[in-house]
């Protein structure tokens, strides 16, 4: 759709405006009736009323978390699909989410960990551990790190950790009660501190990924060509893998495991901006943020006054759109 760099550049500007608009809407719309004026006054002249407190302390963190976590998921999905050269890769398939969940459940079952803060560090450690394991396993061997071995090792590690987690939860029902809300994945009721802790890593990882995106273009032609062009493919895969795991790890640490965003956003984006990773990565960030923001706003309205888990809402909104794109736009 967007074929020239000029239109793609304008697209970036439009996306930023759209995301800002969505973030503001996220402050205004929800179960508690508030208006745009309330939102403005809540920051300029806070009067301590319920509405103002909700906007500042409940909806603002939510809106920021949805935007940043969506961006993380989109970009890490795009990177993972590119280094494994498999369009089905995503944080949940390369073991990141399973490792995070496993560590959190271990913490709850054996060390009675309770605070969200410690969940965050545990899940980040789990994500990093699982992905390092995947990386070490798949780089063993004569032919080195092939995309196929990365994918296979990823799905084996995912299966392993997921079954450990399930087993622990079946044997220990109190733990199940405690972590179930975390395992569902949500951007609501997460304190802003979580995001602030993770923010430096997210920003650095996003920037480095955007700057280095060109190397993914070379890599995606194929390992042989990339080596021929002078790329050290192992190192490229290693540090892009590390970037992806930092992003996905931060996402799961702040919001719990949220599926589906990481896998579909890159496909939709590729059908819009083409195959150049210098555009795919930033657009995936915007796409992920947009989807998660819309899903989060929508999740407040379906079962009022109850809220849907945001993971459910991303599927309800994302699926019809994605099927349309998969049928009409993709050259497959």
């Amino acid at each position: 759709m967007l074929h020239t760099n000029l239109t793609r550049g304008w697209g970036i500007a439009v996306s930023i405006i759209a995301i800002l608009f969505l973030m503001l809407s996220s402050l205004v719309y929800g179960y508690t009736d508030t208006t745009w004026t309330d939102a403005y006054l809540a920051f300029m002249k806070p009067n301590g009323s319920n509405e103002h407190l909700i906007i500042k302390d409940v909806r603002l963190p939510r809106s920021l978390i949805a935007a940043f976590i969506g961006a993380c998921l989109g970009v890490s999905g795009a990177i993972m699909q590119s280094i494994t050269r498999n369009p089905l890769s995503s944080p949940s398939i390369l073991g990141v989410n399973a490792g995070a969940s496993f560590f959190v459940v271990i913490g709850v079952v054996f060390f009675s960990v309770q605070s969200l803060q410690s969940y965050m560090w545990l899940s980040f450690a789990g994500a990093a551990f699982a992905f390092s394991l995947v990386f070490i396993l798949s780089s063993a061997g004569r032919e080195g790190l092939t995309p196929l071995k990365l994918t296979l090792a990823g799905s084996a590690i995912t299966a392993l950790f997921a079954s450990f987690t399930q087993g622990l939860l079946v044997l220990n029902e109190t733990a199940l009660d405690q972590v179930l809300f975390w395992l569902a994945g949500s951007v609501a009721n997460r304190p802003l501190d979580l995001l602030i802790n993770a923010l430096p890593y997210i920003v650095v990882a996003l920037l480095v990924a955007f700057i280095k995106a060109k190397e993914l273009n070379v890599l995606s032609i194929g390992d042989d060509v990339a080596v021929g062009l002078g790329q050290k493919t192992f190192w490229t895969k290693l540090y892009f893998g590390a970037l992806a795991v930092v992003l996905a790890g931060c996402a799961v640490a702040v919001a719990g495991p949220i599926g589906f965003v990481g896998i579909i956003i890159p496909h939709v984006i590729r059908s819009i901006v083409g195959l150049d990773h210098r555009w795919i990565l930033p657009y995936s960030a915007f796409g992920g943020a947009t989807l998660l923001l819309i899903a989060d706003i929508g999740s407040r309205y379906v079962l009022m006054p109850q809220e849907l888990p945001v993971g459910v809402m991303t599927a309800l909104i994302g699926v019809p759109f994605f099927i349309y794109v998969a049928r009409k736009k993709m050259g497959v």
């Binding site: 089905l88 579909i264 993971g311 599927a315 994302g318 699926v319 099927i323 998969a326």
Partner: peptide
């Protein structure tokens, strides 16, 4: 088929 399968799976799970 795979992509649409994944999407339908997500929808059913939702």
């Amino acid at each position: 088929l795979l992509l649409i399968g994944i999407a339908v799976a997500a929808f059913m799970n939702a």
